[in-house]
Each structure stands twice: as C-alpha cells, then as structure tokens.
Amino acid sequence: MLVDFYQLGSSPVEQIIASIAEKLLSQDGRLLVVAEDEGVLARLDRMLWDQAPTSFLPHGLAGGAEDARQPILLSTSPDAPNLARNMLIADGQWREAALAYDRAFYLFDAATLEAARLAWKLLAGREGVERRYWAQEDGKWVKKA
C-alpha cells in the first residue's frame, strides 16, 4: 500500500483535493475523503459543486441513501460504503484505518506538521507500506522522499 504525504503550501486544500480526486476518477478509481470537522467537508462539498460544468466531480456527503454509488464520498468516518480503495485524509490527523486501503493521501500543513512527522516515523519499515513525501515548489508538486 502506498501513502503519499502532501505538505500543503499556498494552494487551497480544496483545490488540491479536487485535483487528486479528478485524477483518480479519470482512472476509474473511487475516493473516500475523511475529516473530523464536518465544516471542512461542507466547504469541500460546496467547492466541488461550484466547479465549472466541464470539471464537475461527482460526490456526496456520507450519511445519504446513495453513499454506495458515490465515486467521491466525504465522511467523518474511515469506512467506505462506496467501496473506495483510496483514502484522503484532509485534516492532518493520521488514521491507522488508512492502511486498509490500496493508497492513502495524507494532507498536512504547518499546524499538523508534528503529527505528520510522527506518522512518517511510525510507517517506516512497516511491511507492505511505501511512503512518499511531496511538497509544492513554484506551484508544482515535487517528490522529496
């Protein structure tokens, strides 16, 4: 399983999540986006709906009757009723449940940097886990480790 650590820079988190989601959808993947704060999920939900018609990303907030059909599901829980094999942690709080997925995207900022460092260390040497670290430079993602 692959864990991609993304250190947030100047780009809005919603824009980064939309970019990752769009790429996964183009590969017929499904995504579970997890954050403890429902306000974060509500902002992301609005942003995904407000995209231009050519860039609409089909999604839903967890807790509805159609959860299983959503290609992108926004949730406070690490469980994926949409059968996603990709989990995106949007709030910088590592969840061990991410290791049950094929791939995890772990977004963190300056406020959650120490938690990200701890997660990086805890995952070191774990069998079947590959870690990658990405940071933004001049508006582009650069693999640092």
Rank of each mutant, 00 (worst) to 15 (best):
L73A: 04
E38H: 06
E66F: 08
L57F: 14
L61D: 01
G29L: 05
A52C: 03
W49C: 04
I17G: 03
I20E: 12
E36V: 04
D37W: 06
Q70W: 04
L44N: 01
L61N: 08
I20P: 12
I17C: 00
G64E: 11
R30N: 12
Q27M: 07
D67Y: 10
L24R: 15
W49I: 07
A18E: 10
E38R: 13
A68N: 03
D67R: 06
S75I: 12
I17A: 06
L73D: 02
S75R: 09
V34Y: 06
A18Q: 10
R69L: 14
L74G: 09
E36D: 09
G29D: 13
A65V: 05
E22V: 02
G60P: 03
V40L: 14
R43V: 04
G39K: 15
L41P: 02
L44P: 03
S55G: 05
R69F: 11
R30G: 14
L44S: 03
D45G: 01
R46D: 09
G60Y: 00
L74D: 04
S26D: 11
P53I: 09
V40N: 06
P58L: 05
S75C: 08
E38G: 00
Q15C: 08
R69S: 15
W49K: 06
I17P: 08
L32D: 07
L31R: 04
L61G: 07
